[in-house]
Design a binder for these strands. Sequence first.
DNA 1: TACTCGGACAAAAACGTTTTAACCACGTTA
DNA 2: TAACGTGGTTAAAACGTTTTTGTCCGAGTA
Lengths: 336, 336
Amino acid sequence: MSAVSIKDVAALAGVSPGTVSNVLNRPEKVAGSTRDRVEAAIRELGFVRHGSASSLRAGHSRTIGLSVIDIGNPFFTDVAAGVEDVASDRGYAVLLGNSSGDRLKEQRNLLVFAEQRVRGVLITPSDDDLARLDRIKERGISVVFVDHPASRPDQCSVAVNDVTGGTLAVAHLLELGAERIAYVTGPGTIRQCADRRQGAGRALAAAGRDPGALQEVAMPSMTARSGQQAAEKLLSQGRLPDAIFCANDLLALGVLRGLMHAGVRVPQDVALIGYDDIDFASASAVTLSSVRQPTHRLGQVATELLLDECDNPETHAHQQIMFQPELVIRESTRLP
Amino acid sequence: MSAVSIKDVAALAGVSPGTVSNVLNRPEKVAGSTRDRVEAAIRELGFVRHGSASSLRAGHSRTIGLSVIDIGNPFFTDVAAGVEDVASDRGYAVLLGNSSGDRLKEQRNLLVFAEQRVRGVLITPSDDDLARLDRIKERGISVVFVDHPASRPDQCSVAVNDVTGGTLAVAHLLELGAERIAYVTGPGTIRQCADRRQGAGRALAAAGRDPGALQEVAMPSMTARSGQQAAEKLLSQGRLPDAIFCANDLLALGVLRGLMHAGVRVPQDVALIGYDDIDFASASAVTLSSVRQPTHRLGQVATELLLDECDNPETHAHQQIMFQPELVIRESTRLP
DNA sequence: TACTCGGACAAAAACGTTTTAACCACGTTA
DNA sequence: TAACGTGGTTAAAACGTTTTTGTCCGAGTA
């Protein structure tokens, strides 16, 4: 049993418990010689601080909560890795919550976070219901949005400009000479999908076309399976488009597979571009052009903002950071 | 601020704090009418228990630690999802630690877990150094191995029989009539790779062949990139094998891409099989045959074992559970 | 010499829960 | 009638830190 407490350390070092606490938390406040003695005692006894006791008294823990929509999506996995990176560096632990897009589960996760008195919460909200998050903030827990721009100036957020991304993708397709373009997307309620669609419209307008002239195929989920179904749908509708823009890479990989199955050549017959630039985009049989997001960075920066807000509440200025996406051209839009 | 404590609830309900604690933890010990009153007060005040105070006094938290080798690998992601599932169901929070295969990081994560006084730890150990884990167990923290059979009877583990898996894969290739088979694998120190190799040898022996007659290509990492390099290596060595067995799907996807690039047809020219059956295996241009592991289940069962060990220490019997893998045949080994 | 000042540490009170022992009223049993 | 449970509740003592206040001692100042 881990019976060794700060008192044991204090006794061994011949100081008071308060002094041990000081070397732990404000080493500069204690004289060098005593500090050495205490540190030696800590090592000798294998003391590790009791986080619960610490946060009970201090009023806050060294833990942050991360709530994502789908831990199975490589996009969120990359974000999580970025979060874990900097949190772990700063000695913070990460509490993981996976909502699976379910509001109830998200709610329950937030409750668990509240019980654990996390220092702050990183969340990719599954919808725009902010009242729920206000209840968290009333508890003095900071909240930072990830991959979702905050609509209010009283909180931080980190996102990537999806409108720009949509423009980049479709402008690229237009440059290839595409006349008829299809947009394979997820549910219309998803902000990312809508923003990317809007960006696509801008690219069309900039080329002197009708911004609405996009054949839209909306699927209920954004998985490879849905992508393949979308391809079948397109194939059954007679004349294929010249180019297809997919709202994420999973959809695009599915579309790619559906097309190849039908003997349609990519990019010779149809050009194809995805979104996210997940690792598998460059590993598919025909490597996938995509719109890259600084995913890992997203997680890192969000965590840094959160920890800054926690550690320097008075000087902290809320920021809504918007990254810019980047076009990645690979075989699926490169004519031989 | 979340100033509402158990005392406030007690005051409003007209009972003592101890009674509130009882309705929270042993509802059956308190009379129905008082219970109702207390629960009403809890709802009215929006009280949420202070986890730190609770675990400080109770001596244990409602938190478990999960340490994985690579959160970017879909295999581990699936495991994590399974863990999160049952932990969340039982009201436990999951602390995530990503070791990236780095022993130091793994060490640091375990320290953080110890500080948080987690109830137990789920870990896919990156090596067989058990002394480190003994230090954790001395602290009264239970440890369950995930995807790694425990070598000692004093702890639980959940794993999948990799020897069987290797046998399944190679027996299948032999049935297809393969004469010359290659094994593309990761570092030899990884137990999974070695076990799968051993299984492959058994299949060869069972077919009356030399168990060593396998062309081995060992790569430093088990990613798609490495797989592609492996394919290039095979291509440069002159005559290709009839069939290739890869130690995981990421490698296989890379090999597939490398072969297709060189105009080699799969499965007509070379049959290909991977391992893990990650989602992307069925989404690639040529769908990938693979050896399926009950990944999600692995995470679920491991968590159930851990929580059982924590909640019923006296009746708990340590178990080393070994699941059986399953062959999944897709296009990459299916002759037209 | 008397005084202040500041650095280094100690003592003790708090943080919000859980848990133990004590208590009380009220039937049941001898 | 007296002793004895018994179910329901309370009071109070923990749990291991952090933080505030206080004390001590020696150096610097007048």
